[in-house]
Design a protein around this nucleic acid. Structure first.
Lengths: 118, 118
DNA sequence: CTGTCATTTCGTTATATGGCGAAATATAGA
DNA sequence: TCTATATTTCGCCATATAACGAAATGACAG
């Protein structure tokens, strides 16, 4: 149930698909989805509780990546399915574009710009 | 999204797993889950909208079965996954037991007994 | 130590969802 | 036609969930 509940929210699915491109910093995810950091943090904890992603702390920064996918792993077919099912979704495509811009500089630089903007 | 939302409720997952044993009448599902017919009906419509099951009417009776699973079908890996993941779940095992009793007589007989009981 | 800053936790609010019973619908049978 | 009956639709209520901002946390920088 934890897994399906975790997948039952579109923002969380967006996060999962973003992470297919590799590990990301929380602030990068915030930048792409344009949601409050507290909201993103909650989503991340739900995904982590479902063992869909794993987090790692490095100083003040927190990084998340997809849970290690041993080919036989439980959640593997699910991830594949989601990936296939939404590969042409306009929101997802947009997210990938935005992610490119966001990851074109280091998280620290990104945050600096975010602070200036507000 | 429709699929994952459909799977994010335990009662609906229970229904899916019941249907693995083959087509069932609504009243049989009601009997196993012990929920109001209106509630079950709603769940069934959500599962049908997600293309996870298909319904069929025969006179006053309505039957539902798992959506035809061409091996390559979209929802196939999901179904497999759920089936594996919950195969030892106590609630699911109990449901299967109850289903056996429920399907030991025709739906019409079942309903007759249900009416007497209330 | 003190301040800054990334993230998380907490409290609140609006909306979504699951449940029921009553009424509506549709069909079989008298 | 009229009644009984299986299912669905509707309206309501209680709870769950997603979102935010504010405050707490933890770590680096001076």
């Amino acid at each position: 149930m934890r897994v399906t509940k975790a997948l039952a929210d579109s923002q969380r699915v967006r996060i999962l698909l973003l992470l297919e491109g590799g590990e990301l910093c929380v602030c990068q995810i915030v930048a792409v989805l344009s949601l409050a950091p507290s909201t993103i943090s909650k989503h991340l904890s739900i995904l982590e509780d479902a063992d869909l992603i794993v987090g790692r702390k490095e100083g003040r920064w927190a990084y998340f990546r997809l849970a290690s996918g041993r080919p036989g792993a439980f959640t593997m077919p699910i991830r594949k399915w989601i990936s296939q099912a939404l590969d042409t979704d306009p929101v997802i495509l947009q997210d990938r574009k935005k992610l490119k811009r966001v990851t074109s500089c280091a998280p620290a630089v990104l945050r600096q710009r975010q602070r200036k903007a507000s």
